[in-house]
Design a protein around this nucleic acid. Structure first.
Lengths: 228, 228
DNA sequence: TCAACCATTATTGTTCACAATATCAAACCC
DNA sequence: GGGTTTGATATTGTGAACAATAATGGTTGA
């Protein structure tokens, strides 16, 4: 069987998904044995997955103690937010290329899904779709490298929001996304970039770095339904 | 012994250094056993290091075949260059903070080393010092996250330059660095960012994506002196 | 009652042997 | 003679057993 890489990718994706959807709280312990049986895998594979995720700052490996979902410090949080803002705002201000017609179609479809999720009050779907909007924008106006960098930053932001969010603030106002696309179609890049800056600052303003980083270490049974 | 992480970091650093200094040609095979005895280590640790490096796009793991130094495609090369340009140029245009006095000192010291390396025609020292200049700038004006992102991009650029460089073009004109610092001290950020854009475009213009990616697979004896 | 210590238990870290796979070369058929 | 097949060799992939380490809980003594 040469599908071991696929299996590891599946496990890593499931963990990343759980982090993105804020089901795995920062600080949660990730015991190798437990993960192995949840995913019907073995420790060796789990271990490689955890090593990979630790390189993406999603997981922190403490020697002799094991793997934990990362708990970004306030400073790290600020840096992640600032970095994402720099990338996305600058890209809108000076996009590498024009929006393709199929790109516009993709963005429109995503916004439709966003509206549906909003209507159903499906917070998890909102997170996914909102992330997809930003990533598609980067893919269209930028390139693959920026996209994968931002993918990682978005994942780290999920941890940050879980730790430091003030109330149940909505992560992304979908109206912003709508206005953003309008401005881009009108080639008003300067205005679009300003809107994006405000958009991301909006997320930031919902954070409170003073409060105790509440990290209820949730049991891993949350992962059970993920792997189907 | 709990120093296994340290040992792995040492091996990873040695490999990264070899890539940065362009001693390890893209496409070179990295056999686990051979690396293990070069670094007086074992396959398990080597394997973990290679997995880590593969996450940084420095190494490519081919299932069943082993690890190879990555050979970035022309498209990937363009994306890496564009991403680095976006980050550094935007950061100069709108720095997150002012240059600290000790930051200026550090940059000046680096430029001194740069002049020395230039005088001695020490190409390897030039690479290191030039990278340090850019990274220090990002650390001073930006943050740690952007710094580590750029660290990875610089490493990938080393591979790109090895594969696609036209002649023996100097990677960074030190005069540019000098002018850059002057502009920053004068708070002429707009001009500084333009200079940075030209600076990085200069590197890009030395590349030729049409020529065959010459990848002389160098033996790993190059690594021997690295680990001392 | 509290604190320090020690034994127990659970988890991680390491090593080894073996299985699977790809590479290479020689033999073979067309 | 060229291309294909087939076996030998080397390298990677996998799993399990063992060692080392940290967390846990209970005991003992002040």
């Amino acid at each position: 069987m040469g599908s071991s890489a696929r299996e590891e990718a599946r496990i890593a994706d499931a963990l990343r998904k759980a982090v993105l959807e804020r089901k795995l709280a920062p600080g949660s312990k990730l015991p190798e044995e437990e993960l192995a049986q949840i995913f019907r895998s073995n420790r060796a594979k789990i271990r490689r997955v955890l090593l990979s995720l630790s390189r993406s700052h999603i997981v922190t490996l403490e020697p002799g103690r094991g793997a934990f979902v990362s708990r970004p410090s306030p400073q790290e949080a600020r840096d992640v937010l600032a970095s994402r803002r720099l990338i996305e705002v600058s890209l809108l201000a000076r996009p590498h290329r024009k929006l393709s017609t199929q790109g516009v179609t993709r963005l429109r479809r995503i916004m439709t899904q966003e509206a549906e999720a909003h209507e159903k009050h499906d917070a998890i779907a909102m997170i996914h779709v909102s992330g997809q909007f930003h990533l598609t924008l980067i893919e269209e106006l930028g390139n693959e490298v920026l996209k994968s960098i931002t993918e990682e930053l978005i994942l780290r932001m999920s941890l940050i929001i879980t730790m430091y969010e003030r109330h149940n603030a909505t992560c992304c106002l979908s109206s912003d996304h709508h206005d953003l696309l309008d401005l881009l179609l009108a080639k008003k890049y300067a205005e679009a970039s300003i809107l994006m800056a405000r958009h991301l600052e909006g997320i930031e303003s919902c954070l409170d770095f003073h409060r105790d980083p509440v990290t209820t270490t949730i049991l891993s049974q949350i992962l059970q339904p993920v792997q189907g």
